[in-house]
Design a binder for these strands. Structure first.
Lengths: 206, 206
DNA sequence: CCCACTGTTGACGGGTAGTCAATAGCGCCG
DNA sequence: CGGCGCTATTGACTACCCGTCAACAGTGGG
């Protein structure tokens, strides 16, 4: 034989490293195709790893997926430094401008995040989305300086959660369908949010 | 032997009947659990039918699912008899009231339909949703009497599609989370729709 | 009454996911 | 510097799920 040297068939990594490696791979694949169109076989092959190892680290394909979603949802924590001066119009406009900027920079990630992946209702994914929505609402209230409001607080939160449904749809119109420009989305979102805060909610809880 | 009578192991039905039967069963199952949590095996057993027959009638599990979605989406065609008189506020209010009434009556169906989420990245489902959205937008424009508008027509449609994202989220707040009452949803949707039509779109295309 | 038409079955092949005992990197200790 | 043990990693095994298709059996018409 030319050589009996080792040339190990696989390298042994620290659990954290291996975990991160698989996760990165999953992020990529789930980012470009939806849940069930990605097989663990492919994930394993792509990660250069045995299929069983994925289960060892993440338990289940679903849990791996949830891990990816969680990551996608909570990373873009654009710092809400207080722009707590100016009229409410200015604050809303500034906040939404910042929001759109973050989205524009993380286009692929945002689209992957708001399109829930698989189809049909999925309680786990849905819950993650809800958590993310709550956080978004908190930020929004904070930014426009209404975080200490008490009258109709829960209703206002619910309305802003609804509003975020429009925000998602609008960004889809902007980034995917290209039927609206960023400026138009900005105008739309500003107008409706102001309406909700200054008219709908205000009239509802005088 | 007591009797050699037939007692056929299965009954032979007209294709339409069998198809309808399977479809009804699928509607129920997909209504209460999400796509991949329902197996064709279960579907077949529940329908009292061989698994292969499902493929015979619908080709594929996916196509069966799409059939269900299509049905759910297009049944609630609440007739738009012209309430084309009154102020725009009145017309919008009436239209949305009717909309909420239809939803309230078909609660389960509506939830099953919109809970397919913020659009999976499944092109087929997505296309069906888009078709349904287009129809909804048509009805909306017609109802409020803006169906012949030309200036910024496509942008207006896009904004109303975005708006429908909020409508879906708001009905979810109403029916699932119970964080908003029907009246509050009505107020919210009226206010924002009027803002979009009379302010956002109007200012955008003078 | 029986035959042909066709609605229906059920076994087969290929695929995917989770489990677990066996295996083999590789750091560490002598 | 060699071998020993810890544990990261493998890969076969089981169980399920889906689409196909040749064969079978209700059933209505002659």
């Amino acid at each position: 034989m030319s050589s009996t040297e080792s040339a190990p068939r696989w390298r042994r990594l620290e659990p954290d490293q291996r975990r991160a490696q698989i996760l990165a791979c999953a992020r990529r694949l789930f980012g470009e195709r939806h849940y069930e169109a990605v097989s663990t076989t492919e994930l394993a092959k792509e990660s250069g790893v045995a299929r069983g190892l994925i289960n060892h680290y993440f338990g289940t394909k679903r849990e791996l997926y949830l891990e990816v979603v969680r990551e996608l949802m909570f990373i873009p924590e654009f710092t809400v430094e207080q722009l707590a001066h100016g009229t409410i119009e200015q604050r809303v406009a500034g906040s939404l401008d910042r929001f759109l900027a973050v989205i524009e920079r993380n286009r692929a990630m945002w689209l992957a995040t708001i399109s829930t992946g698989g189809y049909g209702r999925d309680p786990d994914v849905e819950q993650i989305m809800q958590e993310a929505d709550e956080i978004a609402v908190d930020r929004m209230l904070e930014t426009v300086g209404l975080n200490h409001i008490t009258a109709g607080r829960e209703e206002l939160r619910a309305m802003i959660r609804s509003y975020s449904g429009m925000a998602k749809a609008a960004t889809r119109e902007w980034l995917v369908r290209r039927s609206l420009t960023r400026e138009q989305v900005h105008t739309l979102l500003c107008g409706t949010l102001l309406t909700i805060i200054t008219q709908v909610h205000a009239e509802m809880f005088t």
